[in-house]
Design a protein around this nucleic acid. Sequence first.
RNA 1: GCCCCGGUAGCUCAGCUGGAAGAGCGGGUGACUUGUAAUCACCAGGUCGGGGGUUCAAAUCCCCCUCGGGGCUCCA
Length: 615
Amino acid sequence: MGAAMRLLLLHVDYIEYRAKRKTRIAEDVEEHRLQGRAENALVVFTAVERGDGEETVHRAAEEVLETLKQVGAERVVLYPYAHLSSSLADAPTAVEVLRKLEAELAERVPVMRAPFGWYKSFELRCKGHPLSELSKEIGGEEESRALVAEKKLESEWYVLTPEGALVPAEEFDFSGHERLREVYEYELRGTRAAEGEPAHLRLMKEHQLADHEPGSDPGNLRWYPKGRMIKRLLEEQVGRVLAEYGAMEVETPVMYDLEHPQLSSYLHRFPARQYIVLSDRREYFLRFAACFGQYLMMRNMTISHRHLPLRLYELTRYSFRREQSGELVGLKRLRAFTMPDMHTLCGDMEQAKEEFLRQFELSMRWMREVELEYEAVVRFVRGFYEENREFAHTLAKALGRPVLVEMWSERFFYFVMKFEFCVVDSQRKAATLSTVQIDVENAERFGIGYVDERGERRTPVLLHASISGGIERNVYAMLEQAYLRAKRGEKPVLPLWLAPTQVRVLPVSEKSMDYALEVLERLRGMRVRADIDDTTETLQKKVRRAEKEWIPFICVVGEREAEEGVVSVRLRATGENRKMAPEELGRMVEAECRGKVFCPLPLPERLSERPGFRG
RNA sequence: GCCCCGGUAGCUCAGCUGGAAGAGCGGGUGACUUGUAAUCACCAGGUCGGGGGUUCAAAUCCCCCUCGGGGCUCCA
């Protein structure tokens, strides 16, 4: 995004200008401003860009004053100069910004401002010393208010125990809570020198789940059938969890007008970079979450207190964030990712807290379903914590183990508290999955309201929730966890309900093929993803191939099994071999996947008919 | 985005100080008919990431771009 004020600073012996003729957007000015002359001045050619606001003005003033002092100029000449930018603000805004800048400078030095929107002639003589020509760019979204504020943001770390003790993190005994310690250290010190690449990169390719797409922008991946299936199941399952919780699914556009009044003010509180798309002459940004679409929907909804808490959710495929290129990592950090984004309207803070707790528990359920080990981080604005100690304690109690707490001295963001569930990967780095925030700002900003019992219009408290967090990041987390498991000497696995192949049938030789196909047939009516290795490889090779695919149940069938009408099952979880009827195995799989969504095999049943998406 | 490291066959990689592009896996064909982590033989695969430069000669040296990774920064 362009939001930056562009300045060209010239230290001149003199400058003279004369307004000649109005343009369409000319500013009405007093007669004396129409021409001017100044000596030993710092001329500030200025282009105001879209998104520039008070913070930019303030910082521009600081820059100008600093340069003035450095070069020893006596006065400032503010000179509107549109040609410095290709992303100009509209004229009224530009004039307003220039006036503010003039006013702020005028408090400290003599200022002359050339009129905006006139054709002017000018003449100047630049001094030509090393600092006499400078160009500056003030702002840019990375310097947005939220970010600048965050730099000054002070935070303190604690651990809150299920017993309700709030211990400064420094003093907490982390023994028995090593993962929590790792999250804490990661939060405190940020990244650390990692040994090589994160493990999931290799795994996502080896298992033919996903890969980079060099033909796209970095951070936009391609998904192969097995990966797409896993992703789809995660998407559907989280949708199911949310539906059971009472959320209503909606769908909203992926792009929004960059100049929409509320949206642009929200953008400035959210430092993520945006993709910009052009349609005719207008610019749109691609959404980084479903917030806007749902705000704009809620703002037009008819809502009474009887409808609260009111929950909308959307699965965003995709949310776009133009992360800095150096920040992208495999499935962990993407520029296009999928996320269930739910917003809950609550009548008041009491109700918001109740829902927050329910969503905290929903997230716990999610982490259980994807079988991930995680730690909780809860972040508060200190004042909010002080008023809600008992509530904070409830969270640690619900989790049943200590949680890491960050306490901010002031509120710089739109929320007063949030929690995050974090995983720790093979590089001992943490990543956030589930998260919920209590937003006290955006309902008002977007004009979202409801009517209370007395018929009065009130502003609700808004909860932002992503119960699973990024879907791709869930896959990252599962692969990383599988890797860590393998490193400990255990067999790496995915949750059974997500295994692309749950059961593989291996005929001992072609002589057993008919029976093997019969076994497959008997499993087909059940909710089981079963396939068959019908290649002419040796049995050993087939077993090896199945093991490398982490297939949970490998059925060997030969003449002996055919006679008894059973299969010899190699169970990955325990390593044991067991004979059973195909139907018994099918029921086992179904039982273990109860409550989870199901979809059929994402590839041809016969391995001989299956293409390789990769070597 | 900045700094550092890397890109050789579909995949994983070898290729020393510049001197005729290699292996294993995967793929194809044939043989073997197999009892729980790699059967054998043969064959086909390469503008050595892209572009420019230096040189008699570049996968190899230099520059630019691109993609991936690490660090900074940032984050679902």
